[in-house]
Design a protein around this nucleic acid. Sequence first.
DNA 1: CCAGTGATGGGACTTGGTCTCATCGACCCT
DNA 2: AGGGTCGATGAGACCAAGTCCCATCACTGG
Lengths: 189, 189
Amino acid sequence: MARWQPDAPGRLAAAALDLFEENGYENTTVIEIAERAGLTKSTFFRHFPDKREVLFGGGTVAGLLVEGIASAPPGAGPLDTVAEALDALGRTFFTADHRDFSRRRQAVLNAHTELREREALKRIGLTASMIEALRHRGVPDLTARVAAQLGTLTWEIAFDQWIDAGNGEGFGPLARQALAEVRAAGAAG
Amino acid sequence: MARWQPDAPGRLAAAALDLFEENGYENTTVIEIAERAGLTKSTFFRHFPDKREVLFGGGTVAGLLVEGIASAPPGAGPLDTVAEALDALGRTFFTADHRDFSRRRQAVLNAHTELREREALKRIGLTASMIEALRHRGVPDLTARVAAQLGTLTWEIAFDQWIDAGNGEGFGPLARQALAEVRAAGAAG
DNA sequence: CCAGTGATGGGACTTGGTCTCATCGACCCT
DNA sequence: AGGGTCGATGAGACCAAGTCCCATCACTGG
């Protein structure tokens, strides 16, 4: 039998989410997280650069976005291209069985400034990835920045709705509708 | 003669900026900052909630934005309202004699992830203030969110140009022009 | 059976941040 | 002038985050 149970990072992330829900972020010690996962502080920091990052593990989102933008139909406008990327996100990441986890995670993030700060930084990174991917398609810089910004806003709106939705409505359609509304609001501004 | 020199927060902020430029953010200790200002660690944390915040002291920006939005002409559209607010910022905050300080400060912020993270959080707060002020004028929620988001983007663009500009071009005109470009890019997306 | 490799444990150490108590200076009041 | 109050500072103990180094264990291949 193995001394080491598999998937240490996953166990740490799960333990952290549990403890943050139970006692709050700042009342939870890294040592407590590690102990609940059957590990130690050393191992925690070997897998995550800091305490906050334990909630931002699955870092494939940027890749999905870039891929989605790159594989959009050649004639598509910038915002439609972004919509394509959001769809890809909905198919791979924001799927029905991740919804409960996403809701729990987001509730913790919303409750603690320190975590929302990290979330903001991540969001900037993702927006930058989208801008880069759009420019790679030949979209002018400023247009790409506007489209990415509106895309991020769309994502935010759709995500909130997806989290709150009692029915099992998918992320993709919600994003499509949110994008249409953002577009209309932009035209009205 | 006074035991206490005046303006402890200002001296701490100045000392911090100096030291961050000299040795970098993470190589600078709060104790070092305090000592250079002729104070102690205790006093530092009495004036600033944490080490990062020492670079985000002048917290009147949100007020200026809200005021600018509130005092825009009644008939103005959302984006023009935001332009009004950016103008107010340029008149009061981003004035010619603050340009050098702003450049130094921004250089430090750009160089350290920890500080850009805090900057991102501040930006979110300001965007939220703008949204609230716009809604208070009767702007529909979604329109307000889009306008505020584009306003923040405009700000970012204009600020970068203002920082880099060799000539003494003012922030206001730069923001006006940036907004026009953002508008055009939005229409093209 | 043994050596090498990679993940973990353990503990010392620095720093950010909190808290409490003592101290000092200015101002007020008589 | 003298005493008392109040706000700002100093001093130091204390906890938790994060870094670093080295020992230890399990697995693998010879």
